[in-house]
Amino acid sequence: MNGKIAISVAIAFFIVFLSFIPFYQTFRVHNVWEIQNDPFFSQIAKSSQNKIFILGGSAVGQLNTTDVNDIVSKNLENYEVFNLAYNGDLPNLRLQSLDSTINAKPTIVFYGISYWSISDYAEQGNTLSFLGKNFENIDLNSINPKATTLNAIRIAFGDDTGFFPEDKIKLKNTPFFFFAQDQMIIADEEKLKKLDVDRTMNKVHQNPDTSIQLQAFKKTIEKLQKNNIKVVVFAVPLHKNYLQVVPESDKEKFKNTLDEISQDYDVRIYDFTNRYSQLDIWKDPYHVALNPKSNIFSHDIAQMILSEIES
């Protein structure tokens, strides 16, 4: 009888896991960094305009690309700015779409990073290659059954927009980033105090000798330069509350890393980290709000682009 019970439990597990595979394949939430096959790249490649790409994560995504584009195109004929930021960008994730980015033939690429970008906080895991060819591209760490189920529920209720719900706003020339209402609101002091200190310290911890992200970042620069694409790096701005939490040793290491990159790859670095730390322009401690009062960030980025193109 014990054997029968054990077999029953094994069958229960088998049925559940077996049913999950097609469910996952049907409803899985595509990761935001899986942009390499997006039609944006092939469409933009045909354009005769000089293309300026801005890469980065959500901190870069918060730029008002329309404003940046207006300022740049007013001063420079035949140039167009595209903001290719997506949530949670990391250099090793960006590498996956780098060939598509290069094939779109940008003239210059601006890459916005910060402490967390090269800290190895989020490493990519192993693949399920041991299960055979069909699973080689499934990243074990990226399988999130809950996200898959929620996506299935969303679709079942008629919302087929997948990862991006309908109430989100999309700016022109910002193909991979969407804005919810709260991303446009400047937060008050109380909300800016909401910071998970332990998590933040863990997230910004710099270890340049072993950082996989730093290696990927350097590889990205090398690859772009090999394809005659000029690269400019900028450190995204942060609020004073965030900067208070970042240990001084990590700030120092990050600065040294940027200096090294500048020397080794002859790359210009713009450091916006502290520039607006005291201003009232923030959505949260690490994102400038997309708000008319916060346009200083977009304007400064536009000026950076102009000075780099004109130099």
Binding site: V16, F17, S19, F20, F23, N141, S142, I143, N144, P145, K146, A147, T148, T149
Partner: peptide, 9 residues
Amino acid sequence: GAVLYLYDA
């Protein structure tokens, strides 16, 4: 099934 399908990563 309930546990797996709502299992957060």
